[in-house]
Design a protein around this nucleic acid. Sequence first.
DNA 1: ACAATTTACGACAACGTTTGCACTACATTA
DNA 2: TAATGTAGTGCAAACGTTGTCGTAAATTGT
Lengths: 345, 345
Amino acid sequence: MTVTIKDVAKKAGVSPSTVSRVLSNHPRISLETSRKVKIIMEEMGYTPNMMAKSLVSKTTNSICIILPKPAEELFSNLFFMELIRGIVTQASRSGYDVLISSGANEKEELEAVSRLLKGRRVDGAILLYSRKDDAVIEFLETGGYPFVLIGRSDRYENILSVDNDNVMAAYDATNHLITMGHERIGFVSGPSELIVSRDRLEGYRKAMESNGLEMRPEWIVEGEFLQDSGYRAMSFFMNLPNRPTALVAVDDMVSFGVLRGLTELKYKVPEDLAIVSFNNIPLSQLSSPPISSIDIGIYHLGYTASQVLIQSIKNPNNHDGYTNRFVIPHRLIIRESSMYSASKK
Amino acid sequence: MTVTIKDVAKKAGVSPSTVSRVLSNHPRISLETSRKVKIIMEEMGYTPNMMAKSLVSKTTNSICIILPKPAEELFSNLFFMELIRGIVTQASRSGYDVLISSGANEKEELEAVSRLLKGRRVDGAILLYSRKDDAVIEFLETGGYPFVLIGRSDRYENILSVDNDNVMAAYDATNHLITMGHERIGFVSGPSELIVSRDRLEGYRKAMESNGLEMRPEWIVEGEFLQDSGYRAMSFFMNLPNRPTALVAVDDMVSFGVLRGLTELKYKVPEDLAIVSFNNIPLSQLSSPPISSIDIGIYHLGYTASQVLIQSIKNPNNHDGYTNRFVIPHRLIIRESSMYSASKK
DNA sequence: ACAATTTACGACAACGTTTGCACTACATTA
DNA sequence: TAATGTAGTGCAAACGTTGTCGTAAATTGT
């Protein structure tokens, strides 16, 4: 029922090839025919069939976002929404469609990626986060598929990636607290298999060390990027005999959990515990008190990732050599949760 | 380079058709050949080419989500993340991929939809929200494309839609405040071209009326689903000579704005102004005080929409007649922001 | 034991594009 | 004038599937 290139051709009294060439602005088509055909296309309401196009061109003009394993949980983090927004916006501007994919477990995830890339449903992929060891990266890398990683991998050196300098960011966050006079500073980390967790932990360590501050093992707890982890970490910290006066949390959601707990126990923020965390999701400024956060430019991260990916799809062998890794700048946003000068005892 | 059905066929010593039939578990294939072919497929790492498949089957096993016009803003609302999560989860379970699409303006939006549906890149669409008059709905309806609306349309009666009973929800919210002893109740609405705004306003009206309470025009203000609107509404209300003691806000984000303003002015919630709003986004329980909200089951809304759409794609003429409209139940979550019995003066 | 049916498979034509090649008019050049 | 070039178009073969139809061989019924 739908009108095809042949229908247009017939009505215009030309061959299908000509219509196709009109469509792609082939130089060797006379202005006259071009105009005529275009009018007929308009009249008949012709829309190119993407499937047929893709079949022959071996390209789909779409990319996919691979969400990490426990997508359900992670989805609840506004972080991903921002990222997706950046990706979709840029991709849309470049004429690409965006497909969202996730699997219940790593095996399913790999299957999905394989189906999408090998099955030529998409031209490339954007990976969010990265574990130390990632089967999906392995697959994409050995398959030679275009992809970019949001985050970084320490196994593969030459893959395209867009990331923050998380070590430096954590250094800055910690240093800010130190500047405010804090000496006993705790750290709530994310899953240790995530590189971002380890990078931020390292930045915290560096800042503590270079300021000659003591680092107690019990001041570092590992959790998830979720509220609950913050809640638990909070109750752990507050029961410590020599508890921290400030803490750095790996994600704003964690801070919210901490905040909730402290409020329940009638503690004051930042007087009883100062907080700085990461990502600066829109809600950070809405909590009470608003929490200080490292703005890592999430939207920008997504936008750039999409740009880099599409660029690499269009120009696969443009391996500049220099620029495989794109670093998005971060910025410390100081809010009430850390605006209290601890008195040095 | 990639291995096709023909390569497998050649290696297995059978015809391409046979391989295809093995793939689709055709009954008339001997167990022996089936096994042999399957082994070879595995060996050669065969993955079906979705484009070719789609071309002949005229079906893509994917759906798209059409985000409303000002996607940028709306994206910042956790609401959409929840919705997308529900959609992606269900679609993924049904073996469908999800494509996200949005346009900068209504024209672009329509172009995108047309390209996706007419170009056969997706099998159906999920529309979020609905304006009173919607060109996209018009297009989908007249084109006979499968789609479901999250929200409702008052122009088209017989389209598939998944929605809450927003009138009833607003009635419940308002009634809750009345039960708490409030008599002067304000309402912060959303854009009046959104049906959801009007439905909720109507519910508010009904509740006020059936309780014989006065409704002043200045107690109803129109804004966006954004914090700022709440902030502005708040300062408007609080400067009224005969100001409301409670208010119903059309979205939690609006409440946050109200809250922020009240806090700045040292007003107490709920003592000076009680608040109830809609959507119950995860943050509602994190603000201080936590705000009472109507949980509309956002995830469920998305999940159901996907289910209904895919069902209608697979079975286009299963027009039950009864069940075009799916209503997701709502639930009033009472939190601190409304837990104060106003003394009847 | 012979027709009738069933089983298991192959040939081939779609699906709607793109694209290399060939062909026809002319126009240009030597 | 003949050779060469070029602009504009058509033909036909791909791209990787699916599905209809046909047909041997195997099975069944009588």
